[in-house]
Amino acid sequence: MFHIPPPINGPRRHPYPRFCNSQTPNMVFILGLNFPESRLVKSALSSFYGIGPRHTQRLMSKLYIHDTARVGSLADKQVLDLTAELSNMTIENDLRRKLQDNIRRLRDMGAYRGRRHAMQMPVRGQRTRTQTATAGKLNRVERFG
């Protein structure tokens, strides 16, 4: 007789997002990381290395999470789905390792870009007389991220 919505949202923790001011706010576990309940889902997701605004929006649309949703207002099912989605993506250390592998491959084959990385010099033809601080800081074979 009536359409009963599919159980996308399981039992909720709180009907409304709770704002925690206490010293020990209730935390929500997403991909092994703890987030306070008052944190925006958008911000929590984009705090992972490798997830920017685009992936955040894609994930949130896929799981029907609205823009201003707080982590505390997510249903358990949604939290689990988010974790499942995230664990299938190359993010955090996997992504960093991939990046380092790519640089190492360039270095091992003796490519110019690989050598420049190893020398901590600009890779893409920038001048080196001045202004190479960023390259000196970031470009290396064991690049962090």
Binding site: H3, P5, P6, I8, N9, Y64, H66, D67, T68, A69
Partner: peptide, 20 residues
């Protein structure tokens, strides 16, 4: 404005409810 929760209904074309 998209500030309350939403979820789809099994209908075609898809329709959405806002439980909150």
């Amino acid at each position: 404005i998209g500030h309350t929760s939403y979820q789809p209904l099994p209908s075609s074309p898809p329709s959405y409810i806002q439980p909150a």
